[in-house]
Every structure is written in structure tokens, then in C-alpha cells.
Design a protein around this nucleic acid. Sequence first.
DNA 1: TTGACAAATAAGAATGATTACTATATAGTA
DNA 2: TACTATATAGTAATCATTCTTATTTGTCAA
Lengths: 145, 145
Amino acid sequence: MKIENQELKKTFYNKCAEKELKITPQRSLIFDELSKATDHPTADAIYKRVRKTLSNISFDTVYRTLLSFTEIGIVNLVEGTGEQKRFEPNLQQHHHFRCIKCYTIYDFENDAYNDIAVPEDVQRQGVIINKRVVLEGICSKCKVK
Amino acid sequence: MKIENQELKKTFYNKCAEKELKITPQRSLIFDELSKATDHPTADAIYKRVRKTLSNISFDTVYRTLLSFTEIGIVNLVEGTGEQKRFEPNLQQHHHFRCIKCYTIYDFENDAYNDIAVPEDVQRQGVIINKRVVLEGICSKCKVK
DNA sequence: TTGACAAATAAGAATGATTACTATATAGTA
DNA sequence: TACTATATAGTAATCATTCTTATTTGTCAA
């Protein structure tokens, strides 16, 4: 396991303790599996992966667990336009390029985007937790077709 | 009907002609109804509104029509994280503040956000059609609770 | 370590959104 | 006006998500 994953695991234990979520084999496995993922998987995709280790885990457990992870902030829900929910590990701030044809999401990092200021009128409307730039378009693969 | 709505209606006729979509009373009504909306309605919400005028319109027609409008680019699908699809009229470029508790989406305009540059590495991955900043957080209403 | 209790799980059913199907109706055009 | 491809209403089917219930498990105090 890489250093950054050990760090992630620590956050997992800390946050679970803080929010009074018990550490179960299912939760631990689901967390590990999502931490490895680079493809913004759906709950169903994670379910298929964890079943290789825990063959009788239920889909409901996977789904519920992913949602509770997003609630305590150790996992992110990825924005889309109404398809299945997609999840990603809560890594450093990054942004998304989303293909409107195949729905693939490409991550990218950009310091200028990280530093954009929140307008004052929006600050008055609530507390901002996330800033993200979403670029939408057609990816090279879909362009070819 | 206001000037800008007349303009919208022209775009509607032009785009429909261009893409060979027939102008039907249902389509025309659905387009008008969404053009008036400021609340990023779901298909179901639009269905309820148009039924006041066309009482026997089917939900399927409304849903299908909204999707075909997004395909020809006269309507936008709003980003979210896996809830029901939400639609908005395709107006001038704007950005969203999205409450993660109640899912309400607040529009705002910001010139600096409109002008952000697309990084070169992303330009190589595809053609960008939309740039949008999504701010997520907790809105004042939900904060109170 | 053991026992009690609250929390978590598996399994499957229920709900709700979205999509597909089919017979009928209609817009656009000769 | 008549023709033809397209669109529609009504309904059924599918798929994602959420709920229910009986059982199991983690945690903590003794």
C-alpha cells in the first residue's frame, strides 16, 4: 500500500471514530476499493469489485456505505446530469472534464482553478464547501465516431 | 411575452427546422413552460405545469421532448450528483451554487468565471462546449436548521 | 473474557425515475 | 386535400435507489 493510501486509511479511521461509525470489514474493504479506483465508479461497479473478496456482501450495504462515506466527507459524489451516482476518493482538489456523449469523466489539476475566488454575493447565500470547475464537451474518443 | 422570450422562440423554430424536429403544440408548450422557469425543474414538474394547458399530454412526451431539446442544444441539463434530471432554459452563460442538503440550485453570473481559460492539456483531450463553475455548500435556509 | 445493547448487515421487496412499445394521430409537404 | 414520416398517448418494462426485517456483529462495561 502506498504512502498516500496509508494516509487515506488514517483519515478513514479518524473520521469514522469522530462520526461514530463502526469499523466493519465491509466498510474497510469498500473504502480501500474506492481509494484504488481512478474511474469514478458507480455503486454497482464497486459492488462487483468488493464481491471478489467478500462474496456475500449485499448491494445495499455497498450503496449505503458509499453514501455514508460521502456524508462524513471521506468520499466525493461526482457531478453529472442525472445518470447513476458516481463516486471518487476524496483526494486533493481537482476538476473534471466530462464527455457529454459517453459520460466519461477525466480528472485534471489546475492551480488557477483551485484559486478562483468565491464572489461576495454567493458567500452571502451560504457556506461554500467545494469549488470545482466543470468543463463539458466531447472527448477525443467520441469525436472520432 | 418579453423580448428575450421572443428571441428564444425564434431559436426554437430555427433549431427545430435545422434538426428536422416538427413543431407540435406539445413541443411548443413545453419549450415555453421551461423558458419561463427559474427553478431548474424536473421533468415531472414541467409535466404538471403543461397539463394545465394540455390536460392529456403524457409524461413520456414531456420527458422525451426535454431530452431531445437538450440534444439540439436549446435546453440545458443541470449538473447534480445522481438525483432526478433537472432542466433549465439555455440562457446566457452562468454558474451554479448547489446546496448539498436540499439540492436547490442557485444561479449566479460572474464575468471572471466566464473568462477562465481552458488548460492546454484539457484542450488536447477533446472539444469543450461548456465551461461552468460549480460551488457546493450549504445554503442559508439549510444552515438555520 | 463475557454479556448486553446499539449499530450494521444480508436478502429481498418496494418505490420511483427513466425508457421502451405499440396503436393512433398529426405536421409538413406535394 | 392526401400522403408519409414523425410524434403522441397510454401503458408496460426496466433499472437505480431506498426501505423493511430478521439476523449478526462491534463496542463497551463489568
